[in-house]
Design a protein around this nucleic acid. Structure first.
Lengths: 220, 220
DNA sequence: ATATGAAATTAACATTGACTTAACCCATCT
DNA sequence: AGATGGGTTAAGTCAATGTTAATTTCATAT
């Protein structure tokens, strides 16, 4: 997690560096507008912490310039300009968060973590782990593997999986499958269910679906 | 822009309602945990402003419950709990921003607009990068490519794109398209939507619009 | 009013892809 | 061995979507 820290106060820059390094951020400090600008165009950072009052320029202008150049890196303004107008200007310049000095280190950390989360997933969502190898994302309705791959299931397979997750490790009977996936009166042949179970097993090889003869299926 | 305001202090609730109504938000006030929770599950809001100390429950818990139920609506905590620990807890609960009381109305407005991203489309002068190849210029309402070309979209395609950008990578359902682009009662045939999607894809070839069969579309 | 051109909508056609089905195979139990 | 149930495969079907072009609508100027 590479973080560009643009702050001309040497003492404060040092303090913030220490705090954030301890949290696992890799800090790249800059002390002037010009130095920061060239670096931002050349290198990719995951996050920018930006002071507004720089000796040779304005932080808002730097943010605007970045956005104009299609650099979408999240920006947190860290500044003593505490008026609501300054905050508004910060957001309008393309900033993603705004923290007033003086600040508590824990709050800076919390806000930075919030920004990384938003930029990575674009939206906060809770994932449901299952089968020791998989995560279910309710928002996108997709599966993520332990290796980081994303699996998109077909509608019927998805419904199958959801029913399994709902029932935990209980046996799910044939009747329950038909009722849940098709509804009474629309049941296809038994072959269809077998085919979907087969497809789900193929799509999620590490998921153990146990066969209960002449009754149903269940998760191991 | 429907905003759920969950705040038990009647006076403050009224004040905030006035401030935000003047900014064009449609305010739905709730004064208790329970009332808010049932409403949030039944209705879709674009934004939630949430007090932490409610008479019959905790705002952090409400946020957690929402996220657990895959409700991704942006949440701004508005509270007198000003410790850094409380801020951190707010973000961990699934909050998207945190503003301490007492606050300046202009700052609340600025932060809310930042959360919606819609504000960018109307008021801000900053460019919005999207799809790795494009920049959206809210002022001219035009697209700029990485190569420096300018693309002018038709009105309907523009609205489509804005809706996509607003929803980030969430699925946008057919109903949402119709509601947002035409309004209830003025919906054209389904063919129209398909045609516009097709035109947008043609106009922005590098933008990956994923089709979710018999549900809607979403950005990759 | 009328004509014009651009954009939105509709209609028709082509293509895709998910679901179902049927046939076949293998394992297990009596 | 025969019967039964489940796994596997592949082909068929139909609805959903992509695509193109014609038609309608709308805004604007004449």
């Amino acid at each position: 997690m590479k973080l560009a820290l643009i702050e001309d106060d040497l003492l404060l820059s040092d303090t913030v560096s220490d705090i954030l390094s301890a949290e696992g951020f890799e800090i790249f400090p800059f002390f002037s507008f010009d130095n920061a600008e060239t670096a931002l165009y050349e290198e990719r950072f995951d996050m920018v912490v930006l002071d507004v009052n720089l000796p040779d320029g304005n932080g808002f202008d730097l943010a605007k310039a970045m956005r104009r150049n299609a650099i979408g890196t999240p920006i947190l303004f860290l500044t003593s300009q505490s008026s609501a107008e300054a905050v508004a200007l910060g957001f309008e310049s393309g900033g993603d968060d705004y923290l007033k000095k003086p600040f508590e280190p824990a709050e800076l950390i919390a806000r930075l973590k919030n920004l990384t989360r938003r930029s990575f997933f674009h939206t906060s969502s809770s994932f449901i782990p299952f089968g020791k190898h998989y995560l279910f994302d309710p928002l996108s309705q997709k599966i993520m593997t332990a290796e980081g791959n994303v699996i998109t299931l077909h509608a019927k397979e998805l419904s199958l999986l959801k029913l399994f997750l709902l029932k935990s490790t209980e046996i799910v009977t044939y009747e329950e499958f038909f009722e849940e996936l098709w509804g009474i009166g629309n049941e296809p042949g038994f072959d269809a269910l077998r085919a979907h179970i087969k497809n789900l097993r193929k799509a999620l090889p590490h998921l153990e679906i146990e066969t209960i003869r002449s009754l149903g299926y269940r998760l191991a």
